[in-house]
Structure formats: C-alpha cells, structure tokens
Design a protein around this nucleic acid. Structure first.
Lengths: 350, 350
DNA sequence: ACATTTTTTTTACGCGCGTAAAGATTTACT
DNA sequence: AGTAAATCTTTACGCGCGTAAAAAAAATGT
C-alpha cells in the first residue's frame, strides 16, 4: 500500500467507505475489516495506525453492509408486543443493555398490539440476518404458525408469555407462584380476595393467574369469586376503570379485597373507586383493598400506591439474554421453560 | 427466460434471493426488482405472473440489500429520547403510522435518556441511508454539534423539543400558550397557582413553561411563586414525589393551587399528597388543587384524575410527518418553527 | 544471520439487490 | 398489416463490506 490518498491532507474530506479509509490509513482493506471485527485481532502497531486515522476521520463501517455477507452476525432482535406499555419498555431496555454488554447489536421492535404487525416485524427481522431473537409474543392473538416458522429458521427465545413449546426456550415469570403468593398474603391479612380480570385476556399468563387464584382459594378453604369484565385490546386501564364502575355499581364484589389480574387493570380499578368515592387501602377507614400483579413501573405512583407482586425484571432478562446468547454460541440443549418467582411488594393499597 | 427451475416442482423449496425467485416466476430479475419497487410499474400480465409465484413461494426481498444501492430510499428514522415514557411511545407510534400510510418505512429508536446513545443511534441511522428522520432530541443534555452535523447530512425534522435552529424545521407544542392557558384557567377558578418544576429540567420546554407562568401571573396581577425541586434524569415521578414531600413538609406552597411543569411530575406530587394525607381536588373538602401539563396517557388514571393541558398529539405528529415527507419529496422551504396549541382537559384534580 | 511463525497485502469473489443501456418482444394504434 | 410506443430481457456494473487463498512482509527465536 504505497499510495497515500491526496485527500488525506484535507481533514474535512468525508470517508465514504472502507476502501477510502484503508487508503488514508495506509492499511489494506481486509486488515481494516479485520480490525473492525475485532481490534485485538491485528498487530498492536497496525492497530495504532488505524486508530490514529480514526481520530482524524470519523469513519464508521456501514452496519448493514457488514452483515450482508457475514457467516455469523452479532445482531439480535428484540420484539415486544407493545412498547407503549412501560413494562415492556422497561424489560426491553434491560435486555438491550445485556446484549450490548455481551458484544451483540440489539435492535428493538414493537408489534404495537397487532398480530399482523408482529409477523411483519419478524419477516423484516430476517433481513437483518439476526444471530438470534428475543421474542415476547402478543399471546392469544399471535399467528402461531408464522411464529413457529420463524422459530424454525432463526434461534429464538420466547419470553414473558409462552406460546406452545416454540423456539429454543421460554423464560418468564411463574404466574402460579405470583397469584398463589399474593392470594396467600391477602388471605392472611384480611378478607380473602375476589379476582378481577378481563374476560378475554390478550395473553396466556392471565389464564394461569386465574387458575392459580382458584386453586389457592380452594387450598385455603375459601369460596373463590371471579369478576370477568368486557373489553378488547390493550387499553387495560380503561377496561379496568369501566369494569370497575360496573362491578362497584352492581355490588359484584363479594369481599372487601380485590386481586387484579395485572397492575394496569388495578390502576383503572383504583380510578373507578376514586370516582365513586370508595376509599381504598388497608387503613381502618378504607372500604376495600386492591392488589395488582406485575410490579408495573407506574404501580408505585398510584393513590394509594399499589400492593403488587413484581416480576423479577433483572432475573428474567438476565436469564433470557444468557440463554439466547449461549445458544447462539453453540451451547445446544433441549427446549426448556424457566419460570421465575415474583417478589411481593407491600404498599398501601392492600 | 426459458429455463424453469426444477425446484419449482417442490413447493417447500425456500427462495433465497431475487435471482431464484425470478427463475421460478419466469420473469427477469430487473423486472421483478421493478415490481417490488412498485407493483403498478409493470404490465398487468407480468404482475399477475409474479403474484402467482408469490403465492406459492413466500419470497420477500432483503430490505437492507434493497437500500444498499438505491438513490432515494423510503426509509425514515424516528428517534425519541425515552421510549419508556408513554408520551413518546404514543407519539412515536403515531408518527410511524403516518409514515407507513405515506409509503415509507419507519424505524424507531430510543436514546434511552442517554446523550451518548443519542449520537450513537444517529450514527447507526446513517447506515440505513434514511431519506429523512424525525428527531425528538434529549434536550439540554444533547450533544449539539453531533446533532447539527447529522442534520447537515440527512434531512431531519426536529419535534417535541427544539435545539437551536437545526434541521429542516421544528414542530412542537406552544409551551407559552400551554402554560398561559392553564394558568388563566386556574386563576379564574380559584387561587392563583404556584409553579412546581425540576431545578434542572432535561428539556428546554420546561424553561418556556416557567417563563410563561411568570408572565401570565404578572399579566393577571398575581405574585408568582416557583418551587424548583432537585433531581436529575428521567425519573420524573419520583422527583415529583420526593420534591412534593419536601415542599409539603416545609409548607412551601404559598397558595392552595399547584401547577406542575409536566404531568409526570404532577403524578409524583399526587402520590406525595396522598402519602401525607393531603386531599387533592376541587371539591370543598380538598386542601389543594394540582394541575399538570402534557396530556400524558397516564394522567387520566391518577386519583384524582389530573387536570392538564394536552398536546394535540394528532396535529403535532401530522404536521411533523407531512413537513418531513414534503421536504423529502423535493419541497424546499426555509427553516420554520411551528408550535401548536394545547387543549385544556378538565378533570377532578383542579 | 537464518529459518520459522505471525501478520499483512494482493487478488478475487460473494452477499442481495439497484440500475443503466441496448436489444428483443409485446402491445397499442392508425 | 405496419409502425410507434411500451415493456421486457440481457448484460453488466455498482453498493459497502466479508472472506478465502496465495504471496509478500514483518516479527520472533536461536
């Protein structure tokens, strides 16, 4: 490499591609390519030369061209059902960080609550040639066959909500434990709870929670009561609020304690209670107790702050990311489901 | 094109690229390429033949390879400061939809509240060769020069929070009008408000709102009072809660009405009020009134529901998307700032 | 100083698709 | 039927980079 590009004397000259950069740095393109793949893989002296050039010209390889012809990419896709829900935003961010720390390039997608968009996202994801993907399916509404076909083609770890035995593994929370645990707490500290849920929940975890509630109540020798409210879609708070109004008006709650299927529903219910002047909490002057499930980011700021059982965000995302990355790196193992326990968060609502 | 690929008889044969697809469809690759660029651009009969093949083999072009050598792509990047904030999630989704409807391919990114990540995201965005980008900067913490350089290279519309006179235009809300309007409302319906804000707000809109508050109070002939609470970062609710506790304990509020700089701060303040047993609302038995600003998705579900002045989400995102897409399509015009008025949303908190 | 090992350079092709140009084919139209 | 216009096929190159193989150069060891 003898020729030094004349433009090297003009600091502002923008480097368009690796070819140009290799010219001004005086290092051959394949070596430069190697450097960007792993800076440690080239000799110390050439690394210095490259980095010196890098200081003067802020060239960066085109990430999409990079992946075009690579055997194994470092891309991982993260797909959640609905980014507008802070719960998913939170866990997605957590997963992103773990991927970055492990040297991977995460890209985040949301299905925006729409099953068609979910498969659309997955189809587009193929173009990224991802080494793997972390997928939280929409749930009930997901197009099973499309997801399954995707999982056949690219290493996919399912998290949050499981759909059949898809992908390389499932990591999520132990919904039975969630509901049993908080039901137990509620029974020990006051009247046994009734269960407040959506009639047609978007996601299979809700079914598990109802089952766990019924079983727990039976075990404790109490009569269960399930209130299933109408409502489709992902506007859980509004569904909870409207359903709450109806249930309160018709005096459908058989006890003074209400366990909600999830925190967002509980938030809506709390609003309904407020609007009807029903005081919520565990103080003597309160009419009812309300508890949620999920440990939603907003649950701390309701009035009263919501007693709930929280996902172990860190543990779930850690286990999910590690399992996927191990699989990517060749660690083969049979399909496995891991469900982590939740932690009870005691606040003023119950 | 005489040779029909033998694999055509095996329906399951996966098509790897456009070459293979053109073979089994019997149409030349350039024509197939043209079809995918715009199905209307090929003759009706060939379009049918392609679509018939498409039914048997679900081939889709690689979107990243597509953009590799295109003069003008249909990509648009959408960058928000923090996806975990439902406000941004909401507006981002709105923008995405508008881009899709206009025939563009939006991709969503979040800076996750980190200025370094913000420039990182923009650098990576370059690889996408976007036709344009919709950028809501972090604000105060943003690396101005990096953003400016990016705006020089790719058509960028700034929204939500303006940073200098960057990009092709700014579209956001009229923060002066916001605060003037709601201050006016509060003054007319009770005691004039004091102003509750963060000492070092993340985003320049906060300054405008404080100024507007001061000016409005002066205009109405009332003495203003600004309570600035400590706190860094994006955990506004917690900052509002802690600051609220301190202000309540020290009796810093000079009137019974508190206008918060934004809804998330207000949500935290409401929690502090609850925790101190201070009743909020406009009913006779309430101690204070609290109002927010933004029309945050959660504001409907606080207890009491939060009176606020809401962004016109639809109008902002519509104007932002249209302005960018017009610019992309050749419509040149000088830099311009558009600030849309907000709508007062009366609820129970004030 | 020599041979050996490690690293770099050259050369060349591939990824999946855009795109331009010239020729062949098909359509539309008088 | 004949001509012009529209569309398609062929051929060829480009985008920005990965990667393999052979040759050249540099570092290492004795």
């Amino acid at each position: 490499m003898q020729t030094i590009d004349e433009r090297a004397s003009v600091p502002e000259a923008r480097i368009k591609n690796m070819e140009e950069f290799s010219a001004i740095s005086g290092i051959s393109r394949p070596t430069v390519s190697k450097y960007f793949h792993d800076p440690e893989s080239v000799r110390q002296s050439t690394r210095k030369r490259i980095e010196k050039a890098l200081e003067r010209y802020d060239y960066r390889p085109n990430i999409f061209a990079m992946n075009q012809n690579r055997k194994l990419t470092k891309n991982v896709g993260i797909v959640v059902p609905l980014l507008a829900d802070p719960y998913f935003a939170e866990i997605a961010r957590n997963l992103e960080q773990r991927c970055i720390d492990a040297g991977y390039r995460p890209t985040l997608f949301s299905a925006h609550g729409d099953p068609d968009l979910e498969v659309e996202v997955l189809e587009n994801l193929r173009s990224l040639k991802p080494a793997g993907v972390l997928l939280a399916p929409l749930g009930r509404a997901s197009h099973r066959d499309a997801l399954a076909k995707f999982c056949d083609d690219v290493p996919t770890l399912i998290f949050d909500s499981s759909v059949d035995e898809m992908g390389i593994a499932f990591v999520g929370s132990d919904n039975f434990q969630f509901t049993s645990h908080i039901t137990d707490y509620l029974c020990r500290t006051g009247e046994p709870p009734c269960f407040f849920e959506m009639k047609t929940p978007a996601n299979p975890n809700a079914h598990r929670r109802r089952q766990a509630y019924l079983k727990a109540m039976e075990a404790f020798g109490h009569a269960p009561q399930v209130i299933s409210v109408d409502g489709e879609g992902w506007a859980f708070e509004e569904i909870g609020r409207l359903g709450g109004h109806e249930a309160l008006t018709n005096k459908q709650f058989s006890t003074n304690t209400i366990l909600c299927s999830n925190d967002r529903l509980a938030i809506g219910l709390l609003t309904a209670c407020y609007e009807q002047g029903v005081k919520v909490g565990r103080a003597p002057d309160c009419a009812i107790r309300v508890a949620g499930q999920d440990g939603h980011p907003n649950s701390r700021y309701t009035c009263p702050p919501l007693t709930t059982i929280s996902h172990d965000y860190d543990a779930v995302s850690k286990h999910a990311a590690e399992t996927l990355l191990e699989a990517i790196e060749g660690h083969v193992s049979p399909w496995k489901s891991t469900r982590l326990e939740g932690k009870l968060i005691l606040r003023d609502s119950a």
